[in-house]
Nucleic acid binder design. Structure first.
Length: 254
DNA sequence: AACGGGTCCAACCGCCGTGGA
DNA sequence: GTCCACGGCGGTTGGACCCGT
């Protein structure tokens, strides 16, 4: 047997909100706040259920909501955070001031997911091309007299490879900023720090010395320029620990 | 102009975690 | 410890709108 409905639905209005309903809700919340959503519609004189009121307020009427198209930066933030957190829209929305989880969820499903999938396909194709080119080079090395017809493709692959690295650098830089905000916003206990591992203990030392100017030992450009595949795995482990500890990550599939 | 398929987004549904009785 | 009410969350849907034929 299912759970009882959140409220008595008989006689309640559903569907799109009218301008008048919006005004009633805004005025009521401005005057009384929204400590009890279930009781709110009755007190405000709205024929809506409390959940509907809460949703309308948090997703549309809240004064701090940013309307309009997402910027490139916002889109990149969503993509990066989605890679780290998965479909945890509320947690992602918390890092994007003025944007709601619903809005982010919609923009992900309608735009960004396709973009990410296309990028993955392009990456795979580039890798495939690179493998083919390497094979081509191996064959050429046996015969130096043959003109290198594949040079253009090789240049393109090298460029793509560099572009990939730029993207990774951008993501790492973002992740650093993200951790900084995390460290400044939330207090970690001594045990929490110790459980995170040596990288985080290093960070803690820096934070303790200068709480407002945090320098993370993982400096994006330098680290990445020396980055091997095992380093990448280490970084992923590091982030997994951070998010697990932060309670914002239940599982990550690498 | 009419139609059909695709896209987008606001709103709904149902489950889960939490806190109070 | 258990139950229940509530808020919050993520998945899904309905319908308005757009665009190509």
């Amino acid at each position: 047997m299912g759970r009882a409905p959140c409220c008595e639905k008989v006689g309640l209005k559903r569907g799109p909100w009218s301008f008048e309903e919006d005004q009633i809700l805004i005025k009521f919340i401005q005057l009384n706040g929204h400590s009890n959503w279930r009781a709110l519609p009755k007190k405000a004189g709205l024929l809506r259920c409390g959940k509907s009121c809460r949703l309308r307020w948090t997703n549309y009427l809240r004064p701090d909501i940013k309307r309009g198209d997402f910027t490139q930066e916002e889109a990149q933030t969503i993509i990066t955070l989605h890679q780290l957190m998965g479909n945890r829209w509320a947690a992602i929305a918390a890092r994007l001031p003025g944007r709601t989880d619903n809005e982010i969820k919609n923009v992900w499903h309608t735009h960004l997911k396709k973009r990410v999938i296309q990028n993955e396909i392009l990456k795979d194709q580039t890798k495939q091309n690179k493998n083919d080119d390497n094979h081509f080079h191996d064959q050429l090395s046996c015969s130096s007299e043959i003109k290198l017809d594949g040079e253009e493709d090789i240049d393109r692959c090298i460029k793509n490879n560099n572009d990939d690295k730029d993207a990774e650098l951008a993501e790492l830089a973002f992740a650093e900023d993200f951790l900084k905000s995390l460290l400044l916003e939330e207090e970690f206990s001594e045990n929490d720090w110790n459980n995170l591992g040596k990288d985080c203990v290093m960070i803690k030392d820096v934070v303790d010395e200068s709480p407002k100017e945090v320098e993370i030992p993982l400096s994006g450009e330098e680290e990445m320029s020396n980055c091997s595949s095992s380093d990448t795995v280490d970084i992923m482990d590091f982030w997994r620990n951070v998010f697990m500890k932060d309670g914002e990550l239940q599982e990550i599939n690498i």
